[in-house]
């Protein structure tokens, strides 16, 4: 199943470089591009959560891994730009698709019963997406901008700070979750991320042409992923709130 998916991702990546214009201008090409960016984001979330869990299990290891991720040139100058591109591409494309789709029906129904045939999550991807986008904004203000300031403007790559013994990352993380309003906002955004993924996970496979014959298993994995990932992030935030 996975190697089949990787083969398809490979094929599409090759496609990008050769026949980009035609394919990605088509409605299906756009869907495939959307799914590819989503796959990258879902992989990133898994990796991000794995590191964050360390902040609960072992602050020292969390500090070391954070320092590695924050200073490794491959992560900083290759993976990070790809991630930013994927995020921006995903939400810009999300808005583009939403706009095109709203233009495909000029007169609305007087009475429409969407709940009769589709899930709330599938009909509200743009709203769950916009909540995640607002969260990403908050997250950048909280962590990313200060990090960039320290490293690129202050030119301080030491990973230490005044008044903190050893590396600073764990200290900074815990500081953020002192405020219950922030913890609440984080939890809310992650619930909506869960709803986004509850539809998005299987949807991305369908877009890549890959659900036939494996719907059940994909739905199960999708359900697990969309519950466990947000729950993990929320648990970590709540843990630090009660243990700072």
């Amino acid at each position: 199943m996975l190697d089949d998916l990787f083969r398809r991702i490979f094929v599409v990546t090759i496609l990008t470089s050769y026949t980009m214009s035609g394919f990605f201008k088509s409605s299906i090409g756009r869907k495939v591009a959307m799914a590819l960016s989503a796959f990258f984001l879902m992989f990133f979330l898994l990796q991000h959560l794995s590191i964050n869990i360390l902040s609960v299990l072992s602050p020292e290891t969390f500090n070391e891994v954070s320092h590695f991720m924050g200073t490794n040139p491959l992560v900083q100058f290759v993976l990070q730009p790809i991630l930013i591109f994927a995020v921006v591409f995903h939400f810009v494309m999300g808005f583009v698709l939403e706009l095109r789709n709203s233009r495909a029906r000029k007169v609305a129904y007087a009475k429409n019963n969407g709940a009769a045939n589709s899930s709330w999550m599938s009909r509200n991807m743009i709203w769950s997406g916009m909540t995640i986008l607002a969260f990403i904004g908050l997250h950048f203000v909280d962590f990313w901008f200060p990090e960039m300031n320290t490293k690129f403007i202050q030119q301080d790559w030491s990973g230490t700070m005044e008044g903190v013994e050893g590396l600073r990352y764990h200290h900074e993380l815990v500081e953020k979750f002192v405020n219950p309003v922030r913890v609440g906002a984080y939890a809310f955004a992650f619930v909506l991320l869960g709803l986004h993924l509850a539809h998005g996970f299987t949807s991305a496979f369908q877009s890549m042409g890959g659900t036939a014959g494996r719907k059940k298993i994909l739905q199960t994995i999708g359900k697990a992923y969309s519950i466990l990932i947000p729950l993990g992030f929320i648990t970590i935030a709540v843990y630090h709130y009660f243990n700072h």
């Binding site: 299906i28 756009r30 869907k31 789709n101 233009r103 045939n117 899930s119």
Partner: peptide, 22 residues
Amino acid sequence: MVAQMDLEGFGNCTNTGACEVE
């Protein structure tokens, strides 16, 4: 067929699955 479908101004599938039900 896909090119003609796009040309006609139909929207983009987001896999809601409503079509299959109805």
